[in-house]
Simulated assay, not measured.
Amino acid sequence: MQAQLEKILDKNRNKIQYGNLPTYIPELTKANKDALGIYISQPDGKEFGAGDYGYKFTIQSISKVITLIMALEDWGPAYIFEKVGMEPTGDAFNSMMKLEIVRPSKPFNPMINAGAIAVTSMIKGNSPEEKIDRIMKFFKLITQNPTLEINKSIYMSEKKTGDRNRAMAYFMKDVGVINEDVEGNLDVYFRQCSIEVTCKDISRIGLFLSNNGILKETGEQLINPEYTKIAKAFMVTCGMYNASGEFAINVGIPAKSGVGGGIMAVVPGRMGIGVVGPSLDEKGNSIAGIGVLKDISKELDLSIF
């Protein structure tokens, strides 16, 4: 496995030059564009890492999967999906166009920014601090990494430049999708996106989802397995933004990307995969990371279809 991973990384490094670092969050332009790494976690305890798997990056939109299952645990599907839809949009992850032109006015799914902001507002807590504390504790538990922290520089950069997210949030407040204080809720959202992780961390999250919410280390069922299945279904249909259909055909496993360069992938019952490659394609996905996952899926016959 180790030799396979290193060979696949080497094959896909040339794709890095065709991508770019995101500029709309200024701090993300400081990332190492040439970084490329992978980590695999399996239920039997075996783990494999290759390339820059120790490289730290912010989790960004990968966090949406976890906040979704937390909100589902807090309220159940009926409440969540009264306010957030279940369909792909075909639009960019930060588009707000359909919020206004489609009725009833609600985000199409929890994997786009509008939907994730709405979901974060539904996580229980008496204050933004209590909410982010719950989120951080859950991330630390499922990654088995008690040292996880929020990257304060990137958090502040997102907060300062997040006017499009702010506009979407205020619109959703106006139409009744969000009931919480907008600025407090956005603060939680910006913080959750700024959690700093490695490939190992997100591969552990992927393993947790592959085990349908059972924590490998203790055997404890932390999340209703039905909610992890919902999350994985969204990952297949919406997890790679408006490239999700192409990814499903070419790779064939549930995955969620983030503009920090990470991709978390899940092979149900078999493994969690974490990939990092900060150089992004035009749709906001790691350009070399997609190539790596495509090759791994083909070589290891991972597609669920």
Rank of each mutant, 00 (worst) to 15 (best):
L68F: 06
M97A: 15
I66N: 10
A114Y: 05
P128K: 05
A118Q: 14
A116F: 12
I66M: 11
I101L: 15
T89I: 09
M111T: 09
I154L: 08
L99K: 07
S105N: 13
E130C: 06
I117A: 02
F93E: 04
P77E: 09
R103P: 13
T67C: 02
Q60R: 08
I123A: 01
K140D: 10
A116C: 14
K56M: 09
A114V: 06
I112D: 01
N126G: 15
A92M: 03
I123G: 10
W75Q: 15
M70W: 02
E100G: 14
S95H: 00
I123H: 10
E73P: 09
V84F: 03
I66Q: 13
A71T: 09
I69C: 09
M97Y: 15
M156T: 12
S105I: 05
I150N: 03
P77S: 06
P88N: 02
Y55R: 11
V84A: 04
M70L: 04
K131G: 01
I132Y: 11
F108T: 07
K152W: 14
E149Y: 13
D91R: 08
T143S: 00
I117V: 04
T120R: 11
M111I: 11
F81V: 13
D91S: 09
K131H: 07
Y79A: 15
M70I: 09
S63F: 02
V84E: 02
M122N: 01
P110G: 00
L68A: 01
M97R: 15
P110W: 05
S61E: 02
A116I: 12
M70Q: 05
I66C: 11
I123D: 04
Y55S: 12
G115I: 05
K124T: 12
T89V: 07
M96C: 10
I123N: 07
K124R: 13
E82I: 07
M86P: 11
R103W: 14
A114R: 04
W75P: 10
L141R: 11
I154Y: 02
S127G: 06
G85A: 00
P110T: 08
F57P: 00
L99F: 05
M97S: 15
N126I: 12
F93I: 05
G85I: 02
V102T: 13
M97C: 14
T67K: 00
I59Y: 08
Q60H: 06
G115M: 05
K124A: 09
R134W: 12
K137L: 12
F139E: 13
K64V: 00
G115R: 04
Q144L: 12
K140I: 09
V102M: 11
F93N: 01
E82D: 14
N113F: 01
L68K: 02
L141A: 13
G76K: 08
D74V: 05
N145D: 10
T143C: 00
P107M: 06
M97W: 13
A116W: 08
I101N: 14
N109C: 08
T143V: 06
I132A: 10
A116N: 12
T58Y: 01
G125R: 06
I69M: 00
P88G: 03
S121R: 10
K106N: 10
N145E: 01
I117L: 03
I117N: 01
T67A: 05
S153E: 15
L68V: 01
A114D: 07
I135L: 08
K98I: 05
G115W: 02
E82R: 11
P110Y: 01
M156V: 12
K106G: 03
T143W: 01
L99H: 03
A118D: 12
N113K: 08
S63E: 08
E149H: 14
M122G: 04
L99I: 03
F139H: 08
